[in-house]
Design a protein around this nucleic acid. Structure first.
Lengths: 113, 113
DNA sequence: CAGCATCCAGTGGGATACTG
DNA sequence: CAGTATCCCACTGGATGCTG
């Protein structure tokens, strides 16, 4: 049993998987892999995600310290999201999962990232 | 958009993550990493999982061809579950995620696997 | 532009009891 | 031993509308 932040997990792997379990989480991390992105940019890249969920996910990722949020004091508002080092490491593993799927399901066109 | 088996995914990564998104999936795969395991054995190793969910997950994993089920014609029944090659490859990536969590959260005792 | 507030539906998983 | 069958709740994410 692992307890963290008021939640409990059956083991450390369960805990780690919880970071990326959400439907959009892994995809968003990959979208941030190369360069920082703005909110609207992320929303456009991530076809199908609702604004509400994008917000929730970005907050989660920020709390988990996988993503860093930078707010510019401008009008109209400008906010940039980027991966932390910890997040970048995790994302590179996620990319291995993507490679795994490309290898084993070549017939499914890769329309992502 | 990726369509497979009546479900649709926003991209190939979403599709791949769906294999391991469930609460117990990654843990079960790791438990099968070294050697085949019997049903009850898995249930005992995987503290907290209900019989119903263990069944559902094993069926999923079998459908996804990550796990192979071998039934011995004996009484009482004997069934063994093992990783397929595809499953073993994926599981080794999952183990990287576990290593990532060990590295970044050393304070959380690793009671798993 | 980058959010927040609501309301709502689908589903993943828990608890419990039964069987070839 | 290795399952099936129900019932049920909590939570994730969808849709829509409002705001500094």
């Amino acid at each position: 049993m692992v307890n963290y932040n008021g939640r409990s997990y059956v083991c450390l792997l369960d805990f780690a998987m919880d970071f990326i379990r959400g439907k959009w989480t892994a995809v968003l991390l990959c979208h941030l892999y190369n360069e920082p992105k703005r909110f609207l940019e992320l929303q456009r890249m991530t076809e199908g995600i609702s604004q509400k969920v994008l917000n929730e996910k970005l907050k989660e990722l920020e709390n988990d310290e996988l993503v860093c949020k930078k707010v510019y004091a401008e009008i109209p508002p400008k906010v940039e999201y980027s991966l932390t080092d910890k997040g970048k490491e995790l994302t590179s593993i996620i990319k291995e999962i993507e490679s795994w799927s490309v290898k084993h399901y070549p017939e499914l066109d890769n329309k992502c990232i």
